[in-house]
């Protein structure tokens, strides 16, 4: 199957201070895949996503979303950050957080109205959180908070979804619910890219996988490349050597 390329990355290098976090990454993500990014802690998985989303400025390399820069294609992209990256004691409700997903299309100054509220309620329903819409967000469980974040991204109605560890700290029910939504997104022709930690579930959940450990180890269909060889290359004891190149 020959698909369009949703995300094209060439020669991407990112460093905090002196140590490279990502080294010379070339990666082409085809449209319509449900892709896992796997790799050990500190492999640069979140950094890769943040670079694509223009949150982090790379040292070198180019990133293109459907052939154009992120700045021009912003409306095609939605993001689910790590749950722990925000303070959940912030004074706001579940519905209000999901509404934030509409802010991008609204642009500066314009306030969300009925249309935006309706979209947010629909997204809440999709993630099974409609009855919690007025709940203060600190009173949600970890799994519910994750669903709220997912709903916020769904509201963006994007073509490409980036998710940073959406399964972290959620129970089995929530994990099933989330993966079903992701599979639905793929069915609708969307591209979904997920930073993932649980290697056991990769073949069950995803059809595409990228092994990352500072350098790109491998990328391709799960059934072709998800094997011991690549896992050893990514997680093996020798990975420190490859960092220093």
């Amino acid at each position: 199957m020959e698909n369009k390329i949703a995300v094209q990355i060439d020669d991407l290098t990112v460093a905090y201070n002196y140590k490279p976090v990502l080294w010379d990454i070339d990666l082409a993500i085809p449209e319509g895949v449900l892709m896992a990014i796997v790799g050990p802690n500190g492999a640069g998985k979140s950094t890769l996503i943040k670079s694509i989303l223009d949150i982090i400025k790379p040292i070198a390399g180019s990133i293109q979303i459907y052939g154009k820069s992120y700045k021009k294609q912003r409306s095609l992209v939605a993001y689910v950050p790590q749950k722990g990256s925000v303070d959940w004691d912030f004074p706001t409700t579940a519905l209000d957080v999901v509404m934030m997903g509409t802010y991008g299309s609204l642009g500066w100054i314009k306030r969300p109205g009925q249309k935006e509220k309706k979209a947010a309620l629909e997204a809440l329903e999709k993630v099974g959180m409609l009855s919690f819409k007025n709940r203060q967000i600190s009173q949600l469980s970890g799994g519910q908070q994750q669903r709220i974040f997912l709903a916020r991204a769904l509201v963006q109605n994007a073509a490409i979804y980036f998710m940073d560890e959406p399964f972290q700290g959620v129970d089995a029910t929530t994990e099933k619910a989330i993966i079903n939504i992701l599979k639905e997104l793929r069915k609708a022709g969307k591209t979904v890219i997920v930073v993932h930690h649980d290697l056991q579930t990769v073949p069950e959940y995803f059809d595409w996988v990228t092994f990352l450990n500072v350098k790109k180890i491998a990328t391709g269909p799960v059934k072709d490349i998800f094997n011991d060889d690549n896992l050893t290359k990514t997680y093996g004891i020798n990975y420190k050597v490859s960092v220093q190149q």
Binding site: K50, L53, D54, I55, R74, V77, Y79, P81, S85, V86, D87, F90, T92, V97, M100, Y103, G104
Partner: peptide, 9 residues
């Protein structure tokens, strides 16, 4: 609430 997300939008 979420500075990084603000940037992506």
């Amino acid at each position: 609430f979420d500075a990084d997300y603000t940037k992506t939008l």
